[in-house]
Nucleic acid binder design. Structure first.
Lengths: 116, 116
DNA sequence: CCCATATGTTGACAGACGTCGATATCTTGG
DNA sequence: CCAAGATATCGACGTCTGTCAACATATGGG
């Protein structure tokens, strides 16, 4: 295990309206906070960036180990990003490839709105 | 005090390139994390939303107290959002009005990029 | 002037979080 | 099959964070 199940986690739900449009409900805020929490760490931001900027749209874990923390810590952060629905993972032989979940970044940007 | 100084905190620095464009450096990730950390809490997300969606673009603290936590906690969260550069504040008589810092949301959305 | 109202500050506490070393699991090559 | 490499899990530790009650500060009205 350790690889994203095909049915869940990779789905992109619209979640919330732009915060400039209407006040978020407690439930909407709770679910949006999960995504922002996932990016609220320098190491996870760098991991997201490495994956998002990788050619082919995916990166092997072995290419994500140079972020200044130990390997178990990298694994822990990747799990968080997966659980937040921001990354998907795919196992190929010995290696695991991570990719940005389709629509994840767009749906976060949508919450922020681009009109201010 | 307690009101945003006019010179700092409200400035919008571009901070970082889109994460899909190039890998974030440790320093860039650190400073971007400050902003995402600020939104990584349901209460703060609701506060941002209330301010952002307010008519006139600003809201009195007295209109921000119905988010399910005590008044000191609201004050604490507003301070965090101010320090992160996401909100500005203005004192008028007994009341303090909060507004979204110009460019703050846009600059966060820019980091996420809108191309995926 | 003093009191009610609005907002911020302080100190304390429980729980969440980031980090690591040790270890487990899985896969491939020999 | 067994050793080596890649990745995940576990358990522990220190630190950060959200929360509140109590208090402090400031403003305007009577």
């Amino acid at each position: 295990m350790g690889v994203t199940s095909p049915t869940a986690e990779s789905l992109v739900v619209p979640c919330c309206p732009p915060i400039t449009t209407s006040e978020l409900s407690a439930e909407q805020a709770e679910s949006a906070a999960v995504m922002f929490k996932a990016l609220a760490d320098p190491v996870r931001l760098r991991l997201m960036s490495k994956v998002a900027a990788a050619e082919g749209g995916e990166a092997c874990v072995c290419d994500l180990l140079d972020v200044g923390v130990a390997q178990p810590t990298v694994s822990h952060h990747l799990k968080k990003l997966r659980e937040a629905g921001l990354l998907t993972s795919r196992k190929q032989g010995t290696w695991v490839y991570y990719a940005v979940a389709p629509g994840a970044l767009t749906s976060m940007a949508a919450i922020l709105d681009a009109s201010r």
